[in-house]
Design a binder for these strands. Sequence first.
DNA 1: GTCTATAAACCGATAGAC
DNA 2: GTCTATCGGTTTATAGAC
Lengths: 205, 205
Amino acid sequence: MSKDTKQKILDTARELFNERGYNAVSLQDIADALNISKGNLTYHFRKKEELMEALLRENQTEELPNSLHTLEDLDEAFRTMEKVVGQHSYYFLNYAQLSQLSESISEMQKNNYRMIRELLLQGFRNLHTAELFRSEAFSREYDCIVDILCVSILYWSPFESLQRSIGAYKDYRHHAWGIIYGLLTEKGHLELSSLAQFQQLYQAP
Amino acid sequence: MSKDTKQKILDTARELFNERGYNAVSLQDIADALNISKGNLTYHFRKKEELMEALLRENQTEELPNSLHTLEDLDEAFRTMEKVVGQHSYYFLNYAQLSQLSESISEMQKNNYRMIRELLLQGFRNLHTAELFRSEAFSREYDCIVDILCVSILYWSPFESLQRSIGAYKDYRHHAWGIIYGLLTEKGHLELSSLAQFQQLYQAP
DNA sequence: GTCTATAAACCGATAGAC
DNA sequence: GTCTATCGGTTTATAGAC
């Protein structure tokens, strides 16, 4: 029951964090939900912060591809990012606070951000080579748009609930394609509209 | 020393929250920094949450105009939003968490978001009427871009430190204009380039 | 290795003396 | 208005049984 307990703790902690947020969940809550003692919990994870670090390390599974070459690749990346944000909302809901929690968490966040930023930036360049994206109209235009896409996806989870509350909901993927529209060449538009999964994306105004 | 103390508490709390974040600052820390007792502090603000609410109410000063008609107006709005976010970073650093803190805080956030969203959306329509923005290329394109601008500004403060840490820093205003570029008509580009404060905005690639 | 039980330190919040 | 004293709850840390 040993390896099992450690895993059960991680699973339960993730569930509770997703439901109520990192701060609102005490070690007692987690122990109670598992019907184990608080001390048992701190045997496996000496501090709450350590538990969070283990949780992040566990979810460090790289689901993203390591390069983007087609519009489908890009769309798949948006879908994946949105899915990850949805599943680990506890992480993104307290993103800024968690970085203050420990140096190791802050490093993980930086590495993830760096990775996503490079993936998109290189992908934009690939799509430009494939003549699906127009050239940069000004210095660092791709950087600009990629940065905005990054900050948006990182904080999409809390923002989504804000949007829902005022009845303006649409998913991240639609928003991402919305601000990419201006980058597409004619060839890009053509290719996009010929793909089944994009037919709902841009509807006539 | 009574009215004075209340104000001093607010000022000190804001400073400490800006530095270390809401959770990392205890009532004891605030009392110590002011050389008053913890009990005195809770006399003025019965709960930590109440202190935060007072802090937000104090900064509810509406610095934004109530309509945007020119590109200068829009730029001024970006500058103002960026300034506000910088001054009250404690608020945006823990944006999602604060909404869980109390209903009243959540309401304030919703109202602010609604206001900024409407201001930008109506502004975009005005700029379209003035033939500075092109028409929407697809249904709700303006909504899309406005939403992205909103989520970006709300979370710019924590994101900025992430960016700085990987050496990719540029301010919000540049990013905002970066994703608006594709919306400008020829007339829009012309008017923009003729204005002194925009000359640095779009540099040849 | 695994778990239980318990103590120490700290936090937010309350009550009452001055 | 200001302070001291104190309660309940949470986190951290330790000692010891199985």
